[in-house]
């Protein structure tokens, strides 16, 4: 992990815990992500990957601990920091009864996107959905909806992308398109934190990998230091689950 020039991390979590009833979903997660870095989260089902992303994205509040985005506490600057985040979840956050355009228009109002029409055209073009812009979301395939969900997340040009298995339902061409659109746009490189169950994909796209197990980060390393066989062995040792 490269130390940023200033001591401000794009994302920093300090002893973050999350409790559901008597189940501890996150157990003191400490994470530091530099600006422009791409981090992949691995882990078996129930490891806490989705919960961590939900806590980072403000969908959930942590039970304890602090989250800093660009050095600002998420608790105190939620609205300002939400403008810097783009979120792609298991669900698309899209309204089935509205058209693709109407959905994006609605979210552009929520994010105060300037020149919204122009921006909608740009993001829809990025994800290859221009021809379906005026179709109702409910009639689109799962893959198309996922593309649109990515367009929604990119609308306000976020500097931080939080992606929970973003490739769900996408074909190979759409996957390539997705990563092109996500990793950079304009001048700056985005900070990306994503989860995936495909080890190869994580190795290819992440610069650093984290393995979570039972709510804790149990392994952390640079992806360039790993090949697939090594990762499989590390994953098995860290989680006790073979892949």
């Amino acid at each position: 992990m490269a130390e940023p020039f200033s001591t401000v991390w794009a994302v920093e979590t300090q002893d973050v815990t999350k409790v559901f009833g008597n189940h501890l979903a996150l157990r003191g997660v400490n994470l530091k992500v530099a600006g422009g870095e791409s981090v992949v989260l691995y882990g078996p089902n129930g490891a806490g990957k989705t919960t961590l992303l939900r806590v980072l994205s403000t969908i959930m509040k942590p039970t304890s601990g602090n989250i800093l985005i660009d050095g600002l506490n998420l608790k105190d600057h939620a609205e300002a920091l939400q403008r810097r985040m783009g979120i792609v979840s298991h669900h698309t956050f899209l309204y089935n009864s509205l058209t693709a355009f109407e959905n994006l228009d609605f979210y552009s109002r929520m994010y105060d996107v300037p020149d919204a029409r122009e921006r909608i055209r740009e993001v829809v073009d990025m994800v290859g959905m221009t021809a379906r812009l005026h179709d109702r979301v409910g009639i689109l395939s799962r893959g198309m909806q996922q593309r649109l969900s990515i367009a929604r997340a990119l609308l306000h040009k976020p500097s931080l992308m939080l992606l929970d298995e973003p490739e769900t339902g996408l074909d190979q061409q759409a996957i390539s398109m997705l990563w092109e659109a996500l990793k950079s746009e304009g001048q700056g490189k985005r900070t990306v934190i994503f989860t995936t169950h495909t080890l190869e994909r994580g190795l290819e796209l992440g610069e650093r990998l984290l393995i979570l197990d039972r709510g804790k980060i149990v392994h952390e390393s640079a992806t360039k230091d790993m090949d697939l066989a090594c990762l499989k062995e590390t994953y098995r040792r860290a989680t006790g689950v073979g892949v």
């Binding site: 994205s57 403000t58 969908i59 939620a78 609205e79 300002a80 939400q82 403008r83 985040m85 979120i87 979840s89 298991h90 669900h91 698309t92 956050f93 899209l94 309204y95 089935n96 009864s97 979210y107 929520m110 994010y111 105060d112 929604r152």
Partner: peptide, 18 residues
């Protein structure tokens, strides 16, 4: 109901809107 389908309420909650 429309906010629950596709977790749109969560989509609203992550927007910079009170």
């Amino acid at each position: 109901i429309s906010e629950v389908e596709q977790d749109c309420l969560e989509g609203l909650k992550v927007c910079p809107v009170g």
